[in-house]
Design a protein around this nucleic acid. Structure first.
Lengths: 258, 258
DNA sequence: CTCCCTGTTCGGTATTGATGAACGGCGTTC
DNA sequence: GAACGCCGTTCATCAATACCGAACAGGGAG
């Protein structure tokens, strides 16, 4: 493992999580390396546009180069590319916003967001990163992961972001079993108070889960008995079509049960 | 300058521009370093989630970690944060889509995109990176840059993306002078056939240009005499308000003329 | 079955990045 | 207003470490 690169990324991560700007000294303290080392890293990152120095305070913040790279990732992402049209379809069918997400480490990264049709002001959530256990997308994906990986997720830290977030591994495990049976996952205000979600897994040509697609919206509209089943069927159906687009075998997801 | 970091970013850039996936060998050839070196870089980048390896082909592509960092940049971006509400206002006022952008190197990076109100399907352009000379945003920003920097831009390569794109430095220089006088810039299908743009510069508390805000839409709607002036005034007004939000002095932009 | 190409591993070498100490500018405090 | 303390920055020393050539293992094509 290349140490310098590892540290450079550590610097970027720290800049991302911490306050808008950080100084060399504070940065050096946080990641536990000498000040001049951090300085050298920052200078190279700055030359590449990954970091910008505030000319007034001398402090550093993330740079625009990262957006370009991030966008390049999104553009090259096959699931996302293929999902765009399906997401629009699903949004129009159900009248709700649609998220497409993938699992990264222990979080769900939203790679596409189709707005609720004709709606009022909506914030774009593409790029958002959510604890896997607090959203339907995360549960839908986790349920169909290889047993090994799923156990890792359940064994790790389970964050709570609302009072309804589930941080009990056993309860989550039971939910995931159920998800495997019915083919979709729900969340009830576990991510955002007042909002719920319905999501289903998406598989690629090897039959592995590569992500998920699902609805997000007010619980009163999405999770009431009358709408829930209809929405769930629509979500599952679109997820299946999307999987087929990606070349998934018809029985994808079956073998993951266990 | 830290060599390893420089090379790692070079790898990411190459992955971003080239085909969806690249192999170690091809990557090594492109950036001119030994194969095992590239391999080591890729392994660390993979461990950090900046790159993922296609388990089937062994090739590498960009990873989701980049989106997280890119998004963190956007969130921490003061211009963008402050611009969101102004962009919505401007979109509703004019009925057109609004872009907020900054200059990075020789391109304009779109950091925010407010959709045309009530419109049909629209692609989100946040993260897009355009040659500076082909869009109103770029001209608006360039016009108010320090003379030195502006000359650099004019002296460098001027890309053409449509038949209407301007690649003549002198003609551009004349346009920029005019932009400085009227306070806004235009583009007429220089970026996209059928689309035009109107943009104005935004200044920060030091009085330097930090970006621009502007309209994008069909030439028939945006650039016809009846609409153009009205739109231009709205854009300039919003840009000024936004600049004041950022703490810019009232006369920002005046001193840059020359 | 064979060849060639790929991604990968290994270990030695010296390049190169890490470090502590010192400088200069700035805001703060007394 | 002056002295202090903090910050970002530079420099030269040292050895850790990242680079590379050569060799290995696994596929795909012919």
């Amino acid at each position: 493992m290349v140490q310098a690169v590892h540290r450079a990324i550590h610097v970027l991560r720290e800049l991302a999580t911490a306050a808008p700007r950080l100084g060399v000294t504070e940065l050096a303290d946080r990641i536990g390396v000498a000040k001049p080392t951090v300085h050298a890293l920052l200078r190279t990152l700055e030359a590449e546009g990954m970091v910008v120095q505030d000319r007034e305070t001398g402090r550093y913040q993330l740079g625009p180069g990262l957006v370009v790279l991030g966008n390049a990732y999104l553009d090259s992402h096959e699931l996302r590319t293929r999902a765009v049209t399906w997401a629009d379809l699903l949004a129009n069918q159900t009248g709700a916003a649609v998220w497409v997400g993938v699992l990264t480490d222990r979080r769900i990264l939203v790679v596409h967001h189709a707005f609720r049709p004709g709606g009022s002001v909506q914030v774009l959530e593409t790029g958002a990163s959510l604890p896997w256990n607090t959203c339907a997308l995360g549960k839908a994906i986790a349920a169909f992961l290889p047993t090994e990986r799923r156990k890792e997720l359940l064994a790790g830290e389970l964050l709570r972001v609302t009072g309804a977030s589930i941080d009990d591994p056993e309860r989550l495990a039971t939910q995931l079993e159920n998800v495997r049976e019915i083919g979709y996952a729900l969340d009830d205000q576990e991510l955002t108070l007042g909002d719920g979600g319905i999501a289903a897994p998406v598989f690629d040509r090897t039959g592995d889960v590569v992500g998920g697609i699902g609805l997000v919206g007010p619980v009163e509209r999405l999770l009431v008995d009358s709408a829930r089943q209809e929405c769930a069927i629509a979500v599952r159906e679109v997820a299946r079509s999307l999987s087929r687009d990606l070349g998934a075998p018809r029985n994808a997801g079956l073998r993951a049960s266990g």
